[in-house]
Each structure stands twice: as C-alpha cells, then as structure tokens.
C-alpha cells in the first residue's frame, strides 16, 4: 500500500518535470504542418491504483493540471482537461472490465494488465484528454479542423512515447 502511494508520488513529480523540461520544448513542425504536441503527463492519472477513490483521482488530476498550467502560462486549460479525464476514468474502467473482474490492488500498467487491455485503456484516456484540451484551448468549434488535426497527431505522438515508457518499465522489473 505504502509503496503504491510512494510510486504514485514519484511518478507525479517526474512526469511533471519531464513534461515541462523536455516535452514542452519539443516542437515538430514542417512549415504549415504544426500539429505535433507531446503531452505525456496524463500518465499520472492513467496509472493511479485501481482502488483510488474517485474524488481523490479528480483532485490529483486537478493538481497535476494546474502545475502544468503554471509552466504553459495557460491558467485552467490543462487543469480542466485533466479533471475531465480523471472524472471519466472509472467509466472507461467499467467498459473495459475483464470477465473475471479487476484485481483491486493492482495499478493499471502494461505489465499488470497485458497489452490487449492496456492499449484501448491508454488510448481512450489520452484521446479524450487531447480532444478536450485542444477544444478548450481554441475555445470555439470554428477551428474544428485544427482541433481534430492537433488531437489526432498529438495523440499518436504522445501514445507512442507512453507505450515506450511502459514497455521499458515492464521489462525492467
């Protein structure tokens, strides 16, 4: 139990540092084609232990979002998306529940849950995050084309990074 809390805390700090120090600065743009943004910090919400109370997940989502917002100079935008994803997490978990139910003590990671379960889980979480974030950033659906393009390409870029991280993490231990 205590180990899980400690691991989550470490992941919280490390993910925010990486996001701010490295991934904020990466910018792949080819002329007009500027749709790649690496947003990896939702991994904090994604890999919280399964039995974390729903309210706590939402609060952690809010805190991580507001930390990122400080460095992106965008008060509330990341936070609102993170809160939304934290809120919707139990619903996604219910959809993906395996036939025999969850082992409640586990963290939802690639190593614990297997690739066939993990890929739809992380994809839906990240996609919802990206779509919410870019919609709120533009703040109007006039830019729907931009929003969609950014969502799709940033989603692909971020999900690849996170999968690589998960594969390394599951191979190591």
């Amino acid at each position: 139990m205590n180990r899980q809390v400690l691991n989550s805390c470490i992941l919280f700090i490390v993910a925010i540092f990486l996001q701010v120090l490295i991934f904020k600065r990466i910018n792949l743009s080819f002329g007009d084609f500027d749709y790649f943004h690496f947003i990896i910090f939702p991994i904090i919400i994604i890999s919280l232990p399964l039995k974390t109370p729903r309210s706590l997940v939402i609060i952690i989502g809010f805190l991580s979002g507001i930390c990122i917002d400080m460095f992106y100079d965008s008060p509330g935008i990341h936070a609102s998306a993170a809160v939304f994803v934290a809120f919707i997490r139990p619903i996604i978990l219910r959809f993906l529940e395996p036939y025999e139910g969850y082992k409640i003590d586990l963290n939802p990671t690639l190593k614990n849950m297997g690739f066939n379960w993990y890929l739809p889980y992380i994809s839906s979480m990240l996609f919802i995050y990206m779509f919410f974030y870019f919609s709120v950033e533009a703040f109007s659906f006039v830019y729907y084309f931009d929003i969609l393009m950014r969502t799709i390409f940033s989603f692909i870029a971020s999900v690849i990074i996170l999968l690589i991280y998960e594969i390394i993490a599951s191979a190591r231990s």
Binding site: F62, G65, P75, G76, I77, S80, V83, V136, F139
Partner: peptide, 8 residues
C-alpha cells in the same frame, strides 16, 4: 470544472 473555466 467550473473553477477551471472561470480561470480560462
């Protein structure tokens, strides 16, 4: 969520 949108 309301608080976030207030910020935004």
């Amino acid at each position: 969520e309301v608080f976030c949108f207030y910020l935004i």
